[in-house]
């Protein structure tokens, strides 16, 4: 039993190691993807709406969650909305350069074509920002920009503050 097991084990190990080596070898030929820069940062400390590592690994979870909430319940917060991903990560049409999702220069495709994972977003969603995307709404400055989750209390507080300011004028 054990005698049979031993050579089997080493065979499995050898095959496993050979497989592990493939990406290393392949890495020599396929260049790492050239991921385009985003138009802005989320905050001083953080590039994207969640830490970059987290977004690389789990962006689809955020998008999927948002997708169902928006679609079915009308929740329209912007932090994880696909619209804002595109606004920040894809050049605006008025920059004179239209980058479509089938090009490797497109933020999403730069990585997805490398990882050979099909994207099913852009058969229905536009892959570029709207031409008239309002700069104030869609360009990320420093600070929180539009990336906040608007709760009722916050909004009320804001409206109150706005009103007070207006009242003070």
């Amino acid at each position: 039993m054990t005698r049979l097991f031993k050579p089997l084990q080493s065979l499995v190990l050898a095959v496993g190691m050979a497989f592990l080596a493939i990406p290393l070898l392949a890495g020599a030929e396929v260049p790492r993807p050239d991921i385009p820069q985003a138009n802005a940062r989320y905050s001083e400390a953080q590039g994207c709406v969640e830490p970059t590592e987290e977004m690389r690994k789990n962006h689809m979870e955020y998008i999927l969650h948002q997708r169902d909430e928006t679609m079915r319940q009308g929740v329209r917060t912007k932090q994880y909305s696909l619209e804002e991903c595109i606004n920040c990560h894809v050049p605006k049409p008025e920059s004179g350069k239209i980058v479509r999702s089938d090009s490797k220069e497109h933020f999403c495709s730069s990585c997805h074509s490398y990882a050979a994972v099909k994207i099913d977003c852009f058969s229905c969603h536009r892959d570029t920002p709207m031409p008239d995307a309002e700069p104030g709404m869609h360009r990320l400055g420093g600070g929180k920009g539009h990336h906040f989750t608007e709760t009722e209390t916050e909004l009320t507080a804001d409206v109150l503050r706005a009103a007070t300011e207006e009242g003070l004028q």
Binding site: E69, E150, E152, L155, T156, L160, E166
Partner: peptide, 23 residues
Amino acid sequence: AGMSIAPGVFLNQVAQAKPADQP
């Protein structure tokens, strides 16, 4: 915002348009 004085009026008005994160 223009006409309100009391905070309560606000709350009503705000409730009219659903906050973005509410279903």
